[in-house]
Amino acid sequence: MGVRIKIENLDFYYGKFKALKNINMNIYDKKITAFIGPSGCGKSTLLRTLNRMNDFVDGVKIDGKVLFDGIDIYNGGLDPVELRRKVGMVFQRPNPFPKTIYENIVFGLKNNGVKDKKILDDVVERTLKGVYLYDEVKNKINKSALDLSGGQQQRLCIARAIAMQPEVILMDEPTSALDPISTAKIEELLLELKKDYTIIIVTHSMQQAARISDYTAFFLSGEVIEFDETSKIFSVPRDKRTEDYITGRFG
Protein backbone atom coordinates (compact mmCIF):
# COMPACT_ATOMS: atom_id res chain seq x y z
CA MET A 1 0.00 0.00 0.00
CA GLY A 2 1.44 3.35 -1.08
CA VAL A 3 2.37 6.05 1.38
CA ARG A 4 1.37 9.48 0.10
CA ILE A 5 2.48 11.60 3.02
CA LYS A 6 5.09 10.62 5.54
CA ILE A 7 5.35 12.63 8.73
CA GLU A 8 8.64 12.24 10.57
CA ASN A 9 9.53 13.45 14.08
CA LEU A 10 7.33 16.50 13.69
CA ASP A 11 7.30 19.10 16.46
CA PHE A 12 5.11 22.16 16.10
CA TYR A 13 5.22 25.35 18.20
CA TYR A 14 2.87 28.30 18.49
CA GLY A 15 5.44 30.61 20.08
CA LYS A 16 6.56 28.74 23.17
CA PHE A 17 3.58 26.42 23.20
CA LYS A 18 4.40 23.01 21.77
CA ALA A 19 1.21 22.03 19.99
CA LEU A 20 2.50 18.82 18.36
CA LYS A 21 5.05 16.50 19.87
CA ASN A 22 7.15 14.12 17.84
CA ILE A 23 4.50 13.05 15.35
CA ASN A 24 5.32 10.06 13.15
CA MET A 25 2.65 8.88 10.79
CA ASN A 26 2.03 7.56 7.31
CA ILE A 27 -0.92 8.79 5.28
CA TYR A 28 -1.83 6.07 2.82
CA ASP A 29 -2.72 6.69 -0.79
CA LYS A 30 -6.42 6.66 -1.73
CA LYS A 31 -7.53 5.93 1.81
CA ILE A 32 -9.50 7.99 4.28
CA THR A 33 -7.59 8.80 7.44
CA ALA A 34 -9.51 10.28 10.37
CA PHE A 35 -7.97 12.47 13.08
CA ILE A 36 -9.90 12.31 16.35
CA GLY A 37 -9.31 13.70 19.82
CA PRO A 38 -10.60 16.32 22.24
CA SER A 39 -10.56 20.02 21.35
CA GLY A 40 -7.08 21.51 21.46
CA CYS A 41 -5.31 18.18 21.02
CA GLY A 42 -3.51 19.24 17.84
CA LYS A 43 -5.45 17.39 15.16
CA SER A 44 -6.41 20.52 13.18
CA THR A 45 -2.89 21.88 13.61
CA LEU A 46 -1.45 18.75 12.04
CA LEU A 47 -4.04 18.87 9.24
CA ARG A 48 -3.10 22.46 8.44
CA THR A 49 0.58 21.59 8.57
CA LEU A 50 0.10 19.24 5.64
CA ASN A 51 -0.60 22.06 3.16
CA ARG A 52 1.32 24.76 5.04
CA MET A 53 -1.81 26.64 6.07
CA ASN A 54 -0.06 27.44 9.34
CA ASP A 55 2.53 29.53 7.51
CA PHE A 56 0.21 32.49 7.96
CA VAL A 57 0.12 32.18 11.74
CA ASP A 58 2.61 34.29 13.71
CA GLY A 59 5.23 32.60 15.83
CA VAL A 60 4.91 29.19 14.26
CA LYS A 61 7.96 26.95 14.29
CA ILE A 62 8.21 23.47 12.87
CA ASP A 63 10.86 20.80 13.40
CA GLY A 64 10.89 17.47 11.65
CA LYS A 65 9.74 16.51 8.20
CA VAL A 66 6.57 16.26 6.17
CA LEU A 67 7.32 14.26 3.03
CA PHE A 68 4.84 14.47 0.17
CA ASP A 69 5.64 11.67 -2.26
CA GLY A 70 9.06 11.65 -0.65
CA ILE A 71 9.61 15.42 -1.09
CA ASP A 72 10.14 17.50 2.05
CA ILE A 73 7.50 20.25 1.84
CA TYR A 74 9.11 22.45 4.49
CA ASN A 75 12.69 22.50 3.36
CA GLY A 76 12.46 24.00 -0.06
CA GLY A 77 11.42 20.80 -1.77
CA LEU A 78 8.04 22.04 -2.93
CA ASP A 79 6.65 25.50 -3.62
CA PRO A 80 3.76 26.18 -1.19
CA VAL A 81 1.45 27.30 -4.01
CA GLU A 82 2.15 24.10 -5.91
CA LEU A 83 1.71 22.15 -2.67
CA ARG A 84 -1.72 23.69 -2.05
CA ARG A 85 -2.77 22.84 -5.58
CA LYS A 86 -1.95 19.23 -4.83
CA VAL A 87 -3.41 19.30 -1.35
CA GLY A 88 -6.89 20.85 -1.34
CA MET A 89 -8.86 21.80 1.72
CA VAL A 90 -12.49 21.89 2.85
CA PHE A 91 -13.44 23.69 6.03
CA GLN A 92 -15.90 23.28 8.87
CA ARG A 93 -18.41 25.80 7.62
CA PRO A 94 -19.22 25.87 3.94
CA ASN A 95 -17.42 28.94 2.60
CA PRO A 96 -18.39 29.50 -1.03
CA PHE A 97 -17.30 32.78 -2.54
CA PRO A 98 -20.13 35.31 -2.97
CA LYS A 99 -20.19 34.48 -6.65
CA THR A 100 -22.14 32.19 -8.93
CA ILE A 101 -21.90 28.44 -8.60
CA TYR A 102 -20.02 28.41 -11.89
CA GLU A 103 -17.52 31.06 -10.83
CA ASN A 104 -16.87 29.29 -7.54
CA ILE A 105 -15.75 26.16 -9.31
CA VAL A 106 -13.60 27.79 -11.98
CA PHE A 107 -12.05 30.34 -9.62
CA GLY A 108 -8.82 28.44 -9.07
CA LEU A 109 -8.43 27.46 -12.70
CA LYS A 110 -8.99 31.03 -13.91
CA ASN A 111 -6.42 32.29 -11.41
CA ASN A 112 -4.04 29.77 -12.91
CA GLY A 113 -4.63 31.23 -16.35
CA VAL A 114 -7.14 28.77 -17.80
CA LYS A 115 -9.42 30.77 -20.08
CA ASP A 116 -10.84 28.27 -22.56
CA LYS A 117 -14.57 28.35 -21.93
CA LYS A 118 -15.09 24.81 -23.14
CA ILE A 119 -12.50 23.50 -20.69
CA LEU A 120 -14.05 25.50 -17.86
CA ASP A 121 -17.58 24.35 -18.77
CA ASP A 122 -16.40 20.76 -18.80
CA VAL A 123 -14.76 21.11 -15.40
CA VAL A 124 -17.94 22.63 -13.92
CA GLU A 125 -20.11 19.81 -15.21
CA ARG A 126 -17.64 17.08 -14.28
CA THR A 127 -17.00 18.30 -10.75
CA LEU A 128 -20.66 19.02 -10.02
CA LYS A 129 -21.47 15.49 -11.16
CA GLY A 130 -18.54 14.25 -9.10
CA VAL A 131 -20.06 15.63 -5.93
CA TYR A 132 -23.62 14.58 -6.92
CA LEU A 133 -24.76 18.18 -7.07
CA TYR A 134 -25.26 18.52 -10.82
CA ASP A 135 -28.89 17.42 -11.00
CA GLU A 136 -29.82 19.70 -8.13
CA VAL A 137 -28.22 22.86 -9.55
CA LYS A 138 -27.88 22.38 -13.30
CA ASN A 139 -30.53 25.00 -14.02
CA LYS A 140 -29.01 27.62 -11.77
CA ILE A 141 -25.27 27.40 -12.13
CA ASN A 142 -25.18 31.11 -12.90
CA LYS A 143 -27.06 31.95 -9.70
CA SER A 144 -25.33 32.87 -6.46
CA ALA A 145 -23.75 29.99 -4.57
CA LEU A 146 -25.03 31.60 -1.37
CA ASP A 147 -28.59 30.64 -2.33
CA LEU A 148 -27.77 26.95 -1.92
CA SER A 149 -28.54 25.02 1.28
CA GLY A 150 -25.70 24.37 3.73
CA GLY A 151 -25.23 20.80 2.56
CA GLN A 152 -25.24 21.86 -1.09
CA GLN A 153 -22.76 24.65 -0.33
CA GLN A 154 -20.41 22.16 1.31
CA ARG A 155 -20.62 19.85 -1.68
CA LEU A 156 -19.91 22.88 -3.87
CA CYS A 157 -16.80 23.59 -1.78
CA ILE A 158 -15.68 20.02 -2.34
CA ALA A 159 -16.36 20.47 -6.07
CA ARG A 160 -14.29 23.66 -5.96
CA ALA A 161 -11.47 21.74 -4.29
CA ILE A 162 -11.47 18.86 -6.77
CA ALA A 163 -11.69 21.25 -9.76
CA MET A 164 -7.99 21.85 -9.19
CA GLN A 165 -7.40 18.11 -9.48
CA PRO A 166 -5.61 17.79 -6.16
CA GLU A 167 -4.12 14.53 -4.97
CA VAL A 168 -4.99 14.94 -1.33
CA ILE A 169 -8.07 16.56 0.22
CA LEU A 170 -7.91 17.83 3.81
CA MET A 171 -11.23 18.21 5.60
CA ASP A 172 -11.62 19.99 8.90
CA GLU A 173 -14.92 18.82 10.43
CA PRO A 174 -16.69 19.16 7.07
CA THR A 175 -20.10 18.05 8.33
CA SER A 176 -20.26 19.59 11.79
CA ALA A 177 -22.52 22.39 10.56
CA LEU A 178 -24.76 20.09 8.51
CA ASP A 179 -27.99 18.19 9.18
CA PRO A 180 -27.95 14.36 9.17
CA ILE A 181 -29.13 13.98 5.56
CA SER A 182 -26.52 16.41 4.23
CA THR A 183 -23.95 14.68 6.43
CA ALA A 184 -24.88 11.29 5.00
CA LYS A 185 -24.55 12.67 1.46
CA ILE A 186 -21.07 14.05 2.19
CA GLU A 187 -20.03 10.76 3.77
CA GLU A 188 -21.24 8.80 0.74
CA LEU A 189 -19.41 11.28 -1.45
CA LEU A 190 -16.15 10.81 0.45
CA LEU A 191 -16.37 7.05 0.00
CA GLU A 192 -16.70 7.69 -3.75
CA LEU A 193 -13.92 10.29 -3.82
CA LYS A 194 -11.40 8.04 -2.14
CA LYS A 195 -11.20 6.03 -5.37
CA ASP A 196 -9.33 9.00 -6.82
CA TYR A 197 -8.09 11.01 -3.85
CA THR A 198 -6.31 10.59 -0.56
CA ILE A 199 -8.52 12.08 2.15
CA ILE A 200 -7.74 13.22 5.66
CA ILE A 201 -10.64 14.26 7.84
CA VAL A 202 -10.75 15.84 11.27
CA THR A 203 -13.95 14.88 13.01
CA HIS A 204 -15.52 15.06 16.45
CA SER A 205 -17.97 12.31 15.56
CA MET A 206 -16.70 8.87 16.54
CA GLN A 207 -19.45 7.33 14.44
CA GLN A 208 -18.38 9.33 11.40
CA ALA A 209 -14.75 8.24 11.79
CA ALA A 210 -15.93 4.65 12.24
CA ARG A 211 -18.28 4.78 9.25
CA ILE A 212 -16.00 6.25 6.62
CA SER A 213 -12.33 6.08 7.51
CA ASP A 214 -9.81 3.33 6.83
CA TYR A 215 -7.29 4.59 9.38
CA THR A 216 -7.77 6.56 12.55
CA ALA A 217 -5.30 8.57 14.60
CA PHE A 218 -6.19 9.48 18.18
CA PHE A 219 -4.59 12.71 19.42
CA LEU A 220 -4.20 13.88 22.98
CA SER A 221 -2.29 16.96 24.19
CA GLY A 222 -0.30 17.25 21.00
CA GLU A 223 0.66 13.58 20.78
CA VAL A 224 -0.59 10.78 18.59
CA ILE A 225 -1.55 8.23 21.19
CA GLU A 226 -2.64 5.56 18.77
CA PHE A 227 -2.75 5.19 15.00
CA ASP A 228 -4.18 2.07 13.43
CA GLU A 229 -6.78 0.62 11.15
CA THR A 230 -10.14 2.15 12.05
CA SER A 231 -11.73 -1.22 12.76
CA LYS A 232 -9.04 -1.93 15.34
CA ILE A 233 -9.21 1.50 16.98
CA PHE A 234 -12.95 1.19 17.54
CA SER A 235 -13.12 -2.46 18.53
CA VAL A 236 -9.81 -3.24 20.24
CA PRO A 237 -7.84 -0.08 20.97
CA ARG A 238 -4.45 -0.80 22.51
CA ASP A 239 -4.14 2.26 24.69
CA LYS A 240 -6.47 2.82 27.63
CA ARG A 241 -6.62 6.56 26.85
CA THR A 242 -7.95 5.77 23.38
CA GLU A 243 -10.54 3.44 24.87
CA ASP A 244 -11.57 6.02 27.45
CA TYR A 245 -11.95 8.73 24.80
CA ILE A 246 -13.88 6.77 22.19
CA THR A 247 -16.19 5.28 24.79
CA GLY A 248 -16.94 8.74 26.14
CA ARG A 249 -15.19 8.37 29.52
CA PHE A 250 -13.42 11.69 29.01
CA GLY A 251 -12.97 14.35 26.37
Binding site: M206, Q207, A210, F234, S235, V236, P237, E243, I246, T247
Partner: peptide
Protein backbone atom coordinates in the same frame (compact mmCIF):
# COMPACT_ATOMS: atom_id res chain seq x y z
CA UNK B 1 -25.57 4.54 23.54
CA UNK B 2 -23.50 3.61 20.47
CA UNK B 3 -20.98 1.65 22.55
CA UNK B 4 -17.48 1.06 21.22
CA UNK B 5 -14.35 -0.92 22.06
CA UNK B 6 -14.54 -2.77 25.40
CA UNK B 7 -18.17 -1.80 26.00
CA UNK B 8 -19.16 -3.05 22.57
CA UNK B 9 -17.24 -6.29 23.01
Amino acid sequence: QQPLAGDLR
